[in-house]
């Protein structure tokens, strides 16, 4: 199945990818292409936009309309593409630093507008491309090359951030829960509005090594052991959730979509003529 997916949705001549052995990003990228396949989208009508960082190399391998932009700005470029051609399914692939540090302003405003863009944050808790500096999602106390004495920042919950800013679909998945992630991406794309998935990856090369998280398998097992489904969590007492994080769908509602609302303004004048 995988090789078929590669043949159908990837630029095989651009592979192998640049990601390190054991990096979770490949699984996340596969989930995106599998979801596109399951939804039966026309490749010519899908546009994948990214910023800068490890995550943002994904579009180069994927056989769609692809745009690799500047650091943090993927959502701003994507907004232009979506405004100009609302019929395109616009998907943004970004990282935790790209989306919530340098691109944080674009993230909250794209969510506020509820523009029909699906954002998948490949969240590996670290700046990987530049060699392991702490990011806005590095847990407090953890080490990074720029946090040699432990990170004193508090970390972002990206899904909650997007929800508070107005996203109409939010979810979290992980590289371990690959099948669930495919379904989440499908639902995010189906949502006619701003969707965000906080997709937890693993970075064994920098984050894992620096913080003594063990092997790739150990890091995958950590995801398995610490993720609790949001629906299950509702029935659990607080002490059972200590040290855990939630996965699954958090929000899925319908609200007016930005490009459709703008189209209504245009149509108002077309009627007047």
């Amino acid at each position: 199945m995988s090789s078929q997916l590669v043949q159908q949705y990837y630029r095989a001549d651009k592979l192998p990818h640049i990601w390190c052995p054991g990096c979770g990003h490949g699984i996340l990228m596969r989930s995106v292409s599998q979801a596109i396949h399951n939804l039966g989208l026309d490749k010519d009508k899908v546009c994948i936009v990214s910023g800068i960082g490890c995550s943002s190399r994904a579009p180069g391998y994927m056989d769609f309309n692809t745009l690799h932009t500047t650091h943090g700005r993927a959502l701003a470029f994507a907004t232009g593409v979506k405004m100009a051609r609302p019929e395109l399914e616009v998907i943004v692939v970004t990282g935790d630093g790209d989306a919530t540090a340098i691109g944080g302003n674009h993230l909250i405003h794209a969510a506020r507008r509820n523009i029909n863009i699906t954002t998948i944050v490949f969240n590996n808790n670290v700046y990987g491309m530049t060699g392991g500096q702490y990011s806005p999602t590095t847990p407090t106390g953890d080490l990074g090359t720029t946090a040699p004495y432990g990170n004193i920042d508090k970390s972002f919950d990206i899904a909650t951030l997007a929800e508070a800013a107005g996203a109409t679909y939010t979810a979290r998945g992980t590289a371990y829960h690959a099948q669930q992630l495919i379904k989440l991406v499908e639902n995010a794309i189906k949502n006619k509005g701003f969707s965000l998935i906080d997709a937890i990856s693993i970075c064994p090369t920098y984050y894992g090594r620096k913080n003594k998280k063990g092997s790739v398998v150990d890091m995958m097992n950590w995801l398995k052991d610490h993720a609790v489904d949001a629906k299950v969590a509702q029935k659990l007492p607080p002490e059972k959730l200590e040290g855990k994080f939630l996965i699954g769908e958090f929000k899925n509602v319908t609200e007016p979509e930005y490009t459709e609302e703008y189209q209504k303004i245009i149509e108002r004048f077309q009627k007047e003529r």
Binding site: C47, V49, L67, T69, T70, R73, A76, F77, A78, T79, G80, V81, K82, M83, A84, R85, L88, N105, H106, I108, H109, Y262, I265, I266, R268, F269, Q270
Partner: peptide, 30 residues
Amino acid sequence: PRVGGKFIQMEDEIAGMATAIGGSLAGLKS
């Protein structure tokens, strides 16, 4: 909007530039 075009006020100057480029890539004079 009166000529079938589109306007968007972005969250900052950086986005204004990026979004104009995105619009051009999707075929509109921006």
